[in-house]
Each structure stands twice: as C-alpha cells, then as structure tokens.
Amino acid sequence: MKHLLLILSVLLLTSCEKVLFKKDIGSANPLENFDYLWNEVDKKYSYFELKNIDWDEMRDTYRPMLNENSTEVELFSVLASMLNELRDDHTNLTSPFNVSVYNVALNSPQNYRARTIDEFYLTDPWRTGALKNDFLSNGEVGYIRYGSFSSGFSDSQMDLILDRFKDTKGIILDLRENGGGAIFNIPKLLGRFVSSKTLVGYSITRNGEEHNEFGEKEDFYISPTGNVQFQKPVVVLIDRGSYSAATFFAVATKAFSNITLIGDATGGGGGLPNGGQLPNGWTYRFSVSQLLDLNGENYAEDGVPADIDAAFDWNDLETDEILERGILEITE
C-alpha cells in the first residue's frame, strides 16, 4: 500500500490538470468563432420572438461568407452584421480594432438639441451632480436635464434641487438622448415623485434553450426615496435616444398618474445585456432578459410610446417644441 501511495503521489505531482480538464478550446479559426457566437446567442438572446428573427436563417446566411482562411477583419464584419440583425443596441462585438454598434436612434429623426435649450431657455442653470437644473416660464416650471443614467448624483443633491423647485407648478425631467446606464439610478430618481411603494413592471430572463423559455417574472418596484418628495405634475421628455435605463424609467412612469411622457417613443433596450468572450479573445454582449409592463407586455424593447407625441422642428432652432409642450402641460 505504501508503494501504491508513493506511485500515486508521483503520478499526481508529475501530472497536471491538462489530463483532467477538457481540452483548451481557444481558437482563432473563424468558423469555430462563428459557431461559438451563434450558439451563445441562440441559447440566451431574449427577443427572437418579439422581433420575429429566424436565427437559423441568420446562420445559413452569414456562415457561408467565412472559411478557415478568412481574415480577422472579414470575421469581424460577418459577426457584426449577424449581430446587427438583432436590431438591439445592447448587442455589441468588441475586438481590438473595432466595436460593432447597431444604433437604434439613427432609425428615427433626432428630437433634442442641447444648444437650443442652453441658449434660449436656461438663464442661470445649476449643475448639481449630473443634473443640470433651472427655472423655466418665469419660475413656474422646474427643469432637470439628466443626460446619462451612468452619471451619479447624491440624495442631498436631489434634495436641494427639489427644495428649489418646491414652489413651482411642476417639473420637466429631460431624458432625451439619455442612453441609459446604472439601473439603480432609476428608483433613486423616480422614487422622488411617488408617494408609496408601487409595482411598475417585471423582468423575465432566459432560462432554457428554447427561444421562448423564460424564468419567473421578477417584480420591479419603485418606493419613495430621499428626504424631499415632489408630488406635483412631472413631465418626462423622451425620444428615440432614450435607451436602456431610460426605457426602464419610461415604462415605470406608466404606473403613476402624476407623470406624463412627452416626445417620441424611446429607443428600447429593455433587455439586460450580459457579456461573454469568444474563443479568439474578442468579447460580446447581448440581451438575456425582457422588460414587461404591468400588463405583462414586452413592447418596451421596440420603444415606450409617449403619452403626448411631440417633435422637434429643425427649421426653427430657437424653439424646442417638445419642451414647449411640456411647459404647456404643466402650466395650462
């Protein structure tokens, strides 16, 4: 037995994990990388049915464009084109020389011009954290510009802004061209305009290989936050550039009667994007979940429609028609 132990120890010390693990599948082979990505998307992407995408057809269309000798640029081009068929800005391929982007906002007219607001509406804007804020319409309306949910603000900064606006008739929260960011900033911001904990929507996440296999609905609640609340009318300005967390925000507002969406529909981005890596080291991400409204509908991926439609007139750069409609909604 002692000898057996000795032999065993020598075996273990001279062998290594390579004998025990599956082989290294790192590969620069274009076809292997194509198949890996196609399979990962097939297994986990969340919006095939809503967008009516035949993923098998995509493989049949794009795989023949590659062979074992395809260059890395050719591989990137084919993979990026295939991913763009998902029409999803939460889907990207990242290589050392390029990043693929679909760019939903380019499918619709632009509805936000920062200079128009800065030059013709704001007189003494404060920049409080990531929130630019000022009074409009002779002090009747408070205006808050939030350009990205990736940018932070503290509770005390928000307290200050809402305290400044306490005597206004209402607040306009401008989320146009807000491409999203940290989802935790949604309840942090929206929680200032609600009076009680409220269910505002759900998310479901892929949990099986069939395209329609999802897990249980997970509730999304908004609760009052901070020391200062604002219960008067709130107008949220949106457009096709309002994406991801901004779309989550827009869906959530539907649960509150004091909040009105004005502008164009949001760009979408209701799926949580999760990342991964290809056998050649490039990385990717795509949506693995769906955002549902209170009725269980998943339209948010295609955009949350505004309660009141309005559009920016690019023939008149001194007027922001969407902002004007928001002011009217509060002051009339």
Partner: peptide, 15 residues
C-alpha cells in the same frame, strides 16, 4: 450562476 448569468438586482433595480 443560473442559466443566463444574470444578477437579480440588475433586473429589479433593488440595491
């Protein structure tokens, strides 16, 4: 992790 490697809090916004 579960099937899609998703974290609850990113889904429901609860810290």
């Amino acid at each position: 992790p579960g099937y899609a490697y998703a974290y609850d809090s990113e889904i429901n916004g609860v810290e």
